[in-house]
Structures are given as structure tokens and as C-alpha cells.
């Protein structure tokens, strides 16, 4: 989902930033478990990171704002398991109530050694693309005013605004199509630098800038005056 509350850049009202001294990596055993489950199950579930981000953003906005960070991971994984017919909502409720539920194994999990190897190597989103770059470093571009109802990584606060291309990161998996399993559809990714005054008006410090990574379809050439 695109125009929802996960797209927080520039919002007001969330108050001071609360920090915790000597914060532990996880605050509870259930956080450890949900993190580990998310990390290890995406392969067996045959979903990608963009699809998972899309699912998390699709939590209704009123709910999203009330949920803690790992609560969203839990809801996302529960709904994924239910949608993929791995377990029913009733079976989860029964398990929560301490009842035994007959569940038989139907896939092989990602093993610990494989998982550690994957963590250590990762999987790059960079892809070779044949098409020539439409923009080059130094070009002035405008972030398009796009409002798709599906996943995008074009934040609202840059839409319609002018910036300068400062880097070309080459072809990268395009989240807008990858999230819906319509293909990786790699597109060229640019880093675009916006003046704070362009984004936020003259109250902003004229020295300040915001750099945002934007795929080619998010951009258009700035019209010359």
C-alpha cells in the first residue's frame, strides 16, 4: 500500500524521540522468536522482502500506529501463514489455548548452517540492465506525482519536487513489481538530492538537503523554464 501511515517522512505529532540507555538487542523472548521466524521462513513461504514490506504497510493505518515494531512482524507472519494455508486461524487459536492440533510437515525448513551462510553473504538487489540511463549525475529531475494503490518506495514528501541526481546505482530490483510477484523488473536506481527548502519551504535551513534513492520510473526530467 502506498499512501498510508508507514510513509512517515515529514509528519508531525509523534513527539520527542525516546531513547533507552544500554538497550538490549531484543526486549523479550517473543521478540527473539518472531525475528528468527521471519528471517528463516521467507524462503519456505516463497515470498520476497518487498512483498513482506508491502504486507506490513497494509496493516490498517489506525492499527499500524498502535502496534509495536515486532507486533507488526507477528501479524504479518500470522496472516502469511493463514493465507498460504499453512495453518488456519482456528488452529492458531487452539494452540494459543493450549490445545493440541494435528499438523503435518509439508516443507523442509531452512537449516541453521544454511541460514548462517545466507546471513553472511546476503543477496544483492543489484541487477544488470541493458537499457541506457535516462538521467546522469548532475541532471535536475522531478519526482513524479505517482499514487499507486500498491507497494512503492517513492515517499510522499518528495513527490512533485525537484532534485539533482548525485549517483547512479545501476539496475536494481524494482520493488513496485517485485512486491506483487509481477517480476523483479529491474530499473535503474538514482540517488537524488533535494534542497530542504524545496521540500519543506523557506522555513528550512537553505544549507540542508535530503538524499533519497529513487528508481527511474519515479522520476521525470525537470522542465526547463
Amino acid at each position: 500500500m502506498t499512501n498510508s501511515v508507514h510513509d512517515m517522512g515529514g509528519m508531525h505529532g509523534f513527539g520527542e524521540i525516546s531513547r533507552e540507555e544500554n538497550e538490549p538487542v531484543f526486549h523479550a523472548e517473543w521478540e527473539r522468536k518472531i525475528f528468527g521466524m521471519m528471517m528463516t521462513s521467507l524462503g519456505p513461504f516463497q515470498v520476497n522482502l518487498d512483498n513482506v514490506r508491502s504486507r506490513m504497510e497494509s496493516v490498517p493505518p489506525t492499527t499500524y500506529l498502535k502496534l509495536g515494531y515486532y507486533d507488526k512482524w507477528l501479524i504479518t507472519l500470522e496472516e502469511l501463514a493463514i493465507e498460504k494455508d499453512v495453518v488456519s486461524r482456528d488452529a492458531l487459536a487452539a494452540l494459543m489455548a493450549g490445545q493440541d492440533v494435528q499438523l503435518t510437515r509439508d516443507v523442509d525448513p531452512f537449516p541453521a548452517d544454511g541460514m548462517l551462510a545466507f546471513l553472511a553473504t546476503g543477496a544483492t538487489a543489484a541487477r544488470q540492465i541493458e537499457t541506457a540511463a535516462v538521467f546522469k549525475v548532475g541532471d535536475q529531475v522531478r519526482a513524479r506525482n505517482l499514487n499507486p494503490g500498491s507497494h512503492t518506495r517513492l515517499p510522499r514528501y518528495v513527490r512533485g519536487h525537484l532534485g539533482i541526481v548525485i549517483a547512479d546505482a545501476g539496475g536494481q530490483i524494482y520493488p513496485d513489481t517485485n512486491a506483487t510477484f509481477s517480476g523483479e523488473g529491474p530499473e535503474r536506481l538514482y540517488t537524488v538530492q533535494f534542497q530542504a527548502t524545496e521540500l519543506w519551504g523557506n522555513e528550512a535551513n537553505p544549507k540542508d538537503t535530503v538524499c533519497v534513492d529513487l528508481w527511474e520510473p519515479y522520476l521525470e526530467a525537470a522542465r526547463t523554464p
Partner: peptide, 15 residues
């Protein structure tokens, strides 16, 4: 989380 872990472990989605 415990219920989900039990289900996903038994179904083979997590180790």
C-alpha cells in the same frame, strides 16, 4: 508467538 512457532515448526517452515 509460541502458537505460531509451534505451527510453523511442525509444518516445516522454521527450524
Amino acid at each position: 508467538v509460541k502458537a505460531l512457532e509451534t505451527a510453523l515448526t511442525r509444518k516445516g517452515y522454521v527450524d
